[in-house]
Write a protein that binds this DNA or RNA. Structure first.
Length: 415
RNA sequence: GUGAGCGUAGCUCAGUUGGCAGAGCUCCGGACUGUGGCUCCGGUUGUCGCGGGUUCAACCCCCGUCGCUCACCCCA
């Protein structure tokens, strides 16, 4: 048997309905904030991610779906979408178009990892990016939009955590300070931390090993060591968020895994998710556009994991589909049923019929299993009398209706 | 990449000390020849993940391998 590629999934009705509802809510909310949709290619030059995300990050080091095309060029299935959006922004000179400075996207992303709960090789993200506005209000408004979206999607029990990772001016100063502060107790840290202390000291703060916690809690907080401009920005973001009544908490040890972040970083987590509890992450990336050959323009954005979001969105309501199954028996009835179905569909109703002959018993059984609400029964008697039997599968009640009155009756009965 | 737990019918699973592969649900048919669900009766369904080994005999023990799941790492 041929099976789906490891870490990929098929999404079927009715589960697909939950995706479509979430996507519709996202489009509606983002639209009201003046965001327009962008669809970038799944395949991008590998170089884009190496330069954008950073060649020292885990994503680029070991998680990319990278291969050579037929001409030997290295291409990569996008592991995230911010770099692709930034590339498109630069390529199409969108910095000259104020209309295109607020963009959102939704689509599949790929990372070559061992799948587990809440983590797939093909996963899906919804994200938003604001390009070219460096002011703290951008961070706050975009987070506010996100929270509005999550609330409308029905998500409960989430927490927004916020931090600042500084900029190229103040971060190296803090990193040196952090290394000095941790050095005396380095022997007490776990092996990973001792290694990261050399390769990427900021990531030490993110360690989850219990024995490391007291040491890291005592370490200096980057928010206390920002340069004047970064400190002012950070204070501005918090002030405006508070003014918008968006609740958040600060987490001094929040850092993120992509190199392009500057200043604001944030996450939304949910305790309902299990081990992979990050529902969403984002932040400011003021150096990214320039890094990939564009203008020196600011950027801010976030991306949420669709599969993880769906784990905390209430399930779809159960109950019968407001559809009609047209059951028929006999040649004359078949012709009549085709016409009735056409008529009802033109009036906006969902009508499904099957074309191979079967008994009414079998038809009723299939309609029941299909979970539809109504069955339209068309047999010899109905053809002769020109009145058709409409059966409600919830109540079992039947009524005789003319072709002209069927559509209106269905509309009345639709919940 | 590392570790652990699982792979038996379409689904959920049982399978004794190594001795004829099972149950429930589903599906198909009938009771009810034009009516689903509930009930009753009957029936279909297997590469026991795959390959090798041990044995008179392997779903069961051993080795390898693939897949799924969870966790680590990291992240959405």
């Amino acid at each position: 048997m041929i099976t789906a590629v490891k870490g990929t999934q098929d999404t079927l009705f009715p589960e697909i309905g939950r995706w479509q509802r979430v996507e519709a809510v996202a489009r509606e909310v983002f639209h009201r904030y003046g965001f327009t949709e962008i669809r970038t290619p799944i395949l991008e030059p590998t170089e884009l991610f190496v330069r954008g995300i950073g060649d020292e990050t885990d994503i680029v080091n070991k998680e990319m779906y990278t291969f050579a095309d037929r001409k030997g060029r290295s291409v990569t299935m996008r592991p995230e979408n911010t770099a692709g959006v930034a590339r498109a922004f630069v390529e199409h000179r969108l910095h000259e178009s104020p209309l295109h400075s607020r963009l959102f996207y939704m689509g599949p992303q790929f990372r070559y990892e061992r799948p587990q709960k809440g983590r797939l090789r093909q996963f899906h993200q919804i994200g938003a990016e604001v390009l070219g506005d460096a002011a703290p209000g951008t961070d706050a408004e975009t987070i506010g939009m996100l929270v509005e979206f999550l609330q409308k999607a029905g998500v409960v029990g989430i927490e927004v955590v916020l931090n600042s990772v500084g900029c190229p001016a103040c971060r190296p100063v803090f990193v040196a300070l952090l290394k000095d502060a941790l050095a005396p107790r380095a022997g007490e840290l776990c092996g990973d931390c001792r290694r990261r202390l050399e390769t990427n000291p900021l990531r030490v703060l993110d360690c989850k090993v219990p024995s490391c916690q007291p040491i890291l809690d005592a370490a200096p907080a980057i928010a206390d060591h920002l340069c004047e401009a970064c400190a002012e920005h950070h204070a501005g973001v918090k002030r405006i968020l508070a003014g918008m009544a968006v609740s958040f908490s600060e987490r001094a040890r929040l850092v993120r895994g992509l190199d392009y972040y500057t200043r604001t970083v944030f996450e939304v987590t949910s305790s309902a998710l299990g081990s992979q509890d990050a529902l969403l992450g984002g932040g400011r990336y003021d150096g990214l556009l320039e890094e990939i050959g564009g203008p020196a323009m600011a950027g801010f954005g976030w991306a949420l994991g669709m599969e993880r979001l769906l784990m905390v969105v209430p399930p779809a309501p159960s109950g019968r589909l407001p559809w009609t199954y047209a059951a028929w028996a006999g040649e004359a009835a078949y012709e009549r049923t085709l016409a009735l179905a056409r008529h009802l569909r033109r009036e906006g109703h969902v009508v499904v019929m099957e074309h191979a002959p079967r008994s009414f018993k079998s038809s009723l059984k299939r309609a029941d299993r299909m979970n539809v609400k109504w069955v339209l029964i068309v047999g010899e008697e109905e053809v002769a009398s020109q009145t058709y039997t409409l059966k409600d599968l919830d109540t079992g009640e039947q009524e005789a209706l003319s072709e002209a009155s069927l559509g209106a009756r269905l509309r009345e009965k639709t919940p």
